[in-house]
Amino acid sequence: MASSSDPSMETAAPHAAVTAERKLNPDLQEQLPKPYLARALAAVDPSHPQGTPGHDARGLSVLQQHAAFFDRNGDGIIYPWETFQGLQAIGCGFPVSFTLAIVINLALSYPTQPGWMPSLLLSVHVKNLHKAKHGSDSETFDTEGRFDPSKFDAIFSKYGRTQPNALTKDELNTMLKANRNMYDFIGWGASSLEWKLLYSVAKDKDGLLQRDAIRGVFDGSLFERLQDSKKSS
């Protein structure tokens, strides 16, 4: 919290307890250049000011990079069978992969179509992925698919109580509830599905979802690491 000598810089209001409970990082400006500037090509934080080392953005927005792992043939279109293959590659079992492939493509297909006609094959067009962004999320992705470092950092400053750079299962559930927009039932469900799936495949041996795993899911580099780990094991 900022010095009381400058009230305009305070991040907690005395009569709004939630602002003191969900803290912000007042030093982020010193830890990362221009943390308020949403990045189009790299998922950055103080430990990774240039983004993920060795991760090729290929000119894609960070949101597009997040989904590109599931574009198994690299043609810019993701079909349900590709989503299924990608989910299996990161360690999901057959029933989960099969069900989620249908659910995910069913939800994302129509908003990303280049025209008004729906796709009978439930194709998802990566170039239009920003049109499928849902509410009740962390807002780390802006509406154009850029990565907002300040919103990403707030995930941990607000909810990382056990460890400053990780989330427990309970802290994750607290965040999901806190991010809910009123009557946004689709957003509630989508956020819960995404984060709980992430927790199931990326939590560490202590049951913590580490900051770097979460950052890696935003630019898709986590999926590549999980795939490589599964292959090697």
Results as ranks from 00 to 15, higher is better:
S3K: 11
S3E: 10
S8C: 14
A13R: 15
A13N: 15
P14Q: 04
H15W: 13
A17I: 09
V18S: 15
A20D: 07
E21H: 02
L24Y: 12
N25W: 04
N25C: 10
E30F: 13
Q31R: 09
P33A: 09
P35K: 06
R39H: 03
L41A: 12
A42F: 13
A42S: 15
A43C: 10
Q50E: 15
G54F: 03
D56L: 12
L60Y: 09
S61T: 15
G74V: 05
G76K: 05
I77D: 06
W81A: 11
F84I: 01
Q88F: 00
Q88G: 10
A89C: 00
P95S: 12
V96E: 03
F98Q: 13
L100I: 12
I102H: 10
I102E: 02
I102Q: 07
N105Y: 04
Y110R: 13
Y110W: 12
Y110P: 00
P111C: 06
G115W: 01
W116Y: 14
L120S: 12
L121A: 14
L121D: 14
V124A: 08
N128T: 08
L129V: 09
A132K: 11
K133W: 10
E139P: 00
F141P: 06
F147K: 00
K151A: 14
F152T: 00
D153S: 13
F156P: 03
F156R: 07
G160I: 04
P164W: 03
N165F: 14
E171L: 11
E171Y: 09
L172A: 02
N173E: 15
T174H: 08
T174F: 01
N179R: 09
M182Q: 14
D184N: 05
D184S: 02
G187S: 10
G189C: 05
A190P: 00
S191V: 03
S192F: 14
E194N: 11
K196I: 04
L197M: 15
L197D: 04
L198E: 00
V201I: 15
G207Y: 06
G207S: 07
L208K: 05
V217P: 00
F218C: 13
D219V: 08
D219R: 02
G220N: 00
F223G: 01
D228V: 05
K230D: 08
K231G: 01
S232T: 14
